[in-house]
Computed example of a mutant assay.
Amino acid sequence: MSNFSSIINKDKPVLVDFFAEWCGPCKTMSPILKEVKDVLGDKASVIKIDVDKNQALAAQLQVRGVPTFILYKNGKQLWRQSGVVQKNDLINLIQSYA
Rank of each mutant, 00 (worst) to 15 (best):
L93S: 01
F19S: 02
S2P: 00
Q62M: 11
K27D: 06
F4V: 04
Q60L: 08
M1H: 06
A56D: 15
V16Q: 02
N74R: 14
Q55S: 14
K37C: 08
Q55L: 01
Q60E: 14
A59F: 10
P67L: 03
I94Y: 00
A20F: 07
Q81W: 00
N92V: 04
V36A: 09
S2A: 12
L61F: 10
A56C: 06
K12V: 14
G83Q: 09
L93Q: 00
L15M: 10
E35M: 09
L90T: 05
L71M: 13
I94R: 00
A98F: 11
A98E: 15
I94C: 06
G24F: 02
S5D: 15
K34I: 09
Q60T: 11
M29I: 03
F69Y: 11
V63N: 05
I7W: 05
A58S: 14
E21F: 01
V84C: 05
A58V: 04
I32T: 14
P31T: 09
V85C: 13
S96Q: 11
G24T: 11
I47S: 09
K48A: 12
L15W: 00
N88M: 12
S6F: 04
V36N: 03
T68W: 04
D50Q: 05
Q55R: 11
A59I: 01
I47Y: 14
L90Y: 10
A58K: 04
V39P: 03
K34M: 06
D42W: 06
W22A: 09
